[in-house]
Design a protein around this nucleic acid. Structure first.
Length: 111
DNA sequence: CACCTGACCGTGT
DNA sequence: TACACGGCCAGGT
């Protein structure tokens, strides 16, 4: 597996419960601001890694774009709601209150 | 081997 | 304010 994917997984595992972040924010933190799609691709490849809370990664609008990749059509929403978030029309309500940005929450990547 | 697609995002008009 | 488009790159057809 590529180093980039492993770095993505490392960041996703650091998302606190009840908080979410975006594909682009992770890509930017890893020094690849234009590789947001690769983050989504990494999530797609994370199915055999149960410890990756992929449901805490949404797009920049708070839309649950990856929900169709979870078993059942409402699992992603249910997981988030069980952590205290509100979702309507597949979109997180009041995203700003729950957004967790690795670029500010974590120290910069060393050298 | 070439082409297409996808859990995205920032920029330009 | 809204839409179009290029960049990114792995994997399937």
């Amino acid at each position: 597996m590529s180093l980039f994917f492993d770095q993505v997984y490392a960041v996703v595992q650091m998302i606190p419960p009840g908080r979410v972040t975006s594909y682009g924010a992770i890509a930017r933190y890893l020094g690849h601001p234009k590789s947001a799609r690769m983050v989504g691709y990494a999530m797609n490849a994370s199915h055999n890694r149960p410890e990756i809370p992929a449901h805490r990664v949404v797009n920049r609008n708070g839309l649950l774009t990856g929900k169709h990749h979870f078993p059942g059509s409402k699992l992603m929403q249910q997981l988030l709601e069980s952590e205290g978030l509100s979702i309507k029309n597949d979109q997180i309500i009041d995203l700003n209150n729950f957004f967790w940005d690795p670029n500010t929450a974590l120290p910069p990547i060393e050298i």
